[in-house]
Design a protein around this nucleic acid. Structure first.
Lengths: 193, 193
DNA sequence: CGAGTTTTGAACTGACCGATACATAACACT
DNA sequence: AGTGTTATGTATCGGTCAGTTCAAAACTCG
């Protein structure tokens, strides 16, 4: 009933995500977003309303993808401790192969804090879901005997998420893969039986 | 032999530091810096050359002060484990009483990465010095028996710095004091005897 | 009291910011 | 073919960005 889009919305979100990821929110201009997505200004604003709304979309996209990937590892085979170790190994590998961009959520938290808008809500929801996922894995770890008994699963989840954030920052400052692996090993030592 | 300054350079750096700390590098305008310091544009540029140069000065100031404070705790009385615990407690307390601003260095790493200029060098030097300080404390901990034997002090230092960064990000996302204390306790469990 | 030197305030620079206006283009449906 | 609707490209909006210019001001020293 009207002129059709010349692009796919999801592909544009993906491209915008990489732009924000590389430069941060403030340093990414709408011009950068046009070039990254290949869209004209009109199309960007017609489709996504504003720079901030597009950023919120990219955050949601990043968060959903990241959670799915992490869930695939943490709900995979092996003991809980093995799955957590695999998660850390995957994180380190990703940082080494993807130019130490860190985590978009962590970078955004550090740059903007938790703003009182939909961006802040997306950040909060991401943490919530990460904690739920990690907490469930911790609970399973107590049952399968791979994690130390008597540990509060919620506290373990917070510890793991904190370690993940720490590793992301570490990668950002250019630490070596060995150093990051050593940190992951020590973190595991704190919670394994 | 000329007109004297109407302000103290160190006080201006201190004020600028708080401005950058609250808003991040990109989001802080030169106008913000004028208002924060109380200086006019001419004075700012006459004294500090550029926004980036002033930022580098604030980073150096922040880093030096932070290291001095941390050194005071880590070279204080008690076992190494006790001193590390005190460091964590101080960090959590600072975050709770100072509005969860996080750490200027961590926030900058997340926002800018390690740029190829004096800002990047300042960030690298800060990490270096933090690791040296934490590593020395870890070494002492093996000797006084409060830290587990057989741990590489350098790895322990990386783990502690990573945990510190993790806690800073955690605070930034609004986590409770109890949650942060729980994370610190688990981190200690990984390295204490 | 000048001469020399630096600081300061106000006005200004060109570039870029996020966002919009609007005419034209490209389609679906009748 | 004609009409309604949405997408797109171009030009542009007022505002703000980091940084500069320059004359007046405030000092030290002779």
């Amino acid at each position: 009933m009207a002129r059709p889009r010349e692009f796919e919305e999801s592909a544009a979100v993906e491209s915008a995500m990489h732009a924000f990821w590389e430069r941060g929110y403030e340093a990414t201009s709408t011009q950068d977003l046009c070039e990254a997505t290949g869209l004209g200004r009109s199309s960007v604003y017609n489709t996504f309303t504003s720079k901030r709304a597009l950023f919120r979309r990219t955050l949601a996209h990043y968060s959903a993808r990241g959670l799915a990937g992490r869930r695939a590892v943490l709900e995979g085979p092996g003991t809980a401790a093995e799955r957590i170790a695999a998660m850390f190994a995957g994180l380190v590998d990703e940082e080494l192969t993807h130019d130490r961009r860190g985590c978009l959520v962590v970078n955004t938290l550090a740059e903007l804090g938790v703003p009182e808008d939909e961006v802040g809500e997306a950040l909060r929801r991401d943490a919530e879901q990460q904690l739920a996922l990690l907490g469930e894995c911790a609970r399973e770890g107590v049952l399968d005997g791979s994690l130390r008994d008597g540990r509060d699963p919620a506290a373990v989840a917070e510890f793991l998420l904190s370690t993940i954030s720490g590793l992301r920052v570490m990668s950002r400052r250019g630490a070596s893969g060995e150093a990051m692996h050593a940190v992951a090993d020590l973190a595991l030592a704190a919670i394994t039986a």
